[in-house]
Amino acid sequence: MAVESPDPDASEAARRAAAVVIDEAMSYVCAAALRAVAATGVADHLAAGPRTPAELAAASGVDAGNLRRVLRLLATRGLFAEDAEGRFGLTEAGEALRSDAPVPVRAAVLMITDRTFWLPSGELTRSLTEGTSAFDDIFGMPFFDHFAQDEQTAAVFHDGMAAMSEAENTPVARCWTFPDEALVVDVGGGQGGFLKAVLRASPTVRGVLYDRAHVLAGHRLDTRETEGRWELAEGDFFTSVPPGDVHVLKRILHDWDDDQCVTVLRNCRRSLAPKGRVLVVDAVIPPGDDPHQGKTLDLLMMVSLTGRERSQDDFERLFRAAGLKLVRIHSTPTVLSIVEAEAEAETEAD
Results as ranks from 00 to 15, higher is better:
219 H>D: 11
219 H>N: 15
219 H>F: 08
220 R>M: 07
220 R>K: 15
222 D>M: 07
223 T>G: 05
223 T>M: 05
224 R>A: 15
224 R>G: 02
224 R>L: 11
224 R>V: 11
224 R>K: 11
225 E>Q: 13
225 E>D: 15
225 E>I: 04
225 E>L: 11
225 E>W: 04
225 E>C: 06
226 T>K: 05
226 T>I: 05
226 T>Y: 02
226 T>C: 15
226 T>M: 05
226 T>A: 15
226 T>W: 04
226 T>G: 04
227 E>K: 05
227 E>A: 13
227 E>H: 07
227 E>M: 05
228 G>P: 01
228 G>L: 01
229 R>S: 01
229 R>D: 02
229 R>Q: 02
229 R>P: 00
230 W>D: 00
231 E>K: 10
232 L>G: 08
232 L>Q: 09
233 A>Y: 00
233 A>R: 14
233 A>H: 06
234 E>P: 00
234 E>T: 14
234 E>H: 00
234 E>A: 12
235 G>H: 11
235 G>V: 08
235 G>L: 13
235 G>T: 08
235 G>E: 10
236 D>Y: 01
236 D>E: 03
237 F>W: 12
237 F>L: 15
237 F>N: 08
237 F>M: 15
237 F>R: 01
237 F>K: 04
238 F>N: 04
238 F>Q: 03
239 T>S: 13
239 T>A: 14
240 S>P: 00
240 S>M: 14
240 S>C: 09
241 V>G: 08
241 V>Y: 08
241 V>N: 10
242 P>Q: 11
242 P>Y: 10
242 P>M: 11
242 P>N: 12
243 P>V: 09
243 P>I: 06
243 P>S: 14
244 G>K: 03
244 G>E: 10
244 G>R: 03
244 G>P: 01
245 D>F: 00
246 V>S: 10
246 V>P: 07
246 V>Q: 12
246 V>D: 03
247 H>G: 07
247 H>A: 08
248 V>T: 14
249 L>P: 12
249 L>I: 08
249 L>T: 09
249 L>K: 08
249 L>G: 12
250 K>R: 15
250 K>E: 07
250 K>H: 06
251 R>G: 06
251 R>L: 13
251 R>E: 10
251 R>Y: 06
251 R>H: 12
251 R>K: 11
252 I>R: 11
252 I>L: 14
253 L>F: 04
253 L>H: 06
253 L>K: 04
253 L>I: 14
253 L>Y: 07
254 H>Q: 13
254 H>S: 11
